[in-house]
């Protein structure tokens, strides 16, 4: 019953690896189950909630809707590559300061989208932030503090 395996190579958080994958394997499954990078969370499996967002060649994608083979030859960045306990990324630090997370399940998705946004535009506008937020569901915070965190990160960022 085994489907034919597909040979692929990708770079995740700077580390290259080769994989023989089922064609139907999702990128979220490759990251979580094969590479054991479990910081990427699957909240709905249908691309609606944004919890599973990772960066594929710098662009935010829903890893639950992306096939692993679509990442063949690509660079993937996950939450595990952002910040360290000693030096949080400015967006992460702003989330802590503004109390922009509670249970934290959806948070890595928000952070990855925000990291991409801040790369594209060092000081994103309120509209850019609002439009980014539309892609993510959070059930704990009511969003106000998330918005506040991103706006304060934008204000303090160097242009």
């Amino acid at each position: 019953m085994t489907s034919s395996a597909f040979q692929m190579t990708l770079t995740v958080n700077g580390e290259r690896s080769d994989h023989a994958v089922r064609p139907r394997l999702l990128l979220s499954e490759l990251l979580r189950d094969t590479l054991r990078l479990t910081g990427t969370h699957v909240g709905c499996g249908t691309g609606a909630c944004g919890s599973c967002t990772v960066l594929l060649d710098g662009e935010p994608v829903r890893s639950c809707l992306t096939l692993a083979v679509q990442a063949d030859g690509s660079e993937v960045e996950t939450i595990e590559s952002v910040g360290t306990p000693e030096a949080l990324h400015p967006v992460q630090a702003a989330f802590n300061k503004s109390h922009a997370l509670q249970c934290g399940f959806c948070t890595p998705g928000f952070i990855m989208s925000a990291v991409a946004l801040f790369r594209r535009s060092a000081k994103p506008s309120g509209e850019q932030i609002d439009s980014m937020l539309q892609g993510h569901l959070c059930r704990c915070t009511g969003y106000r503090n998330i918005k506040e965190a991103l706006r304060s990160a934008a204000e303090t960022a160097e242009a």
């Binding site: 479990t38 360290t84 802590n96 399940f105 948070t107």
Partner: peptide, 18 residues
């Protein structure tokens, strides 16, 4: 500020699916 946050922000939390 919450002491819970760092692990959650860094993707180091352990939910049951993990």
């Amino acid at each position: 500020p919450r002491m819970e946050d760092a692990r959650l922000l860094l993707g180091q939390a352990q939910f049951v699916a993990d």
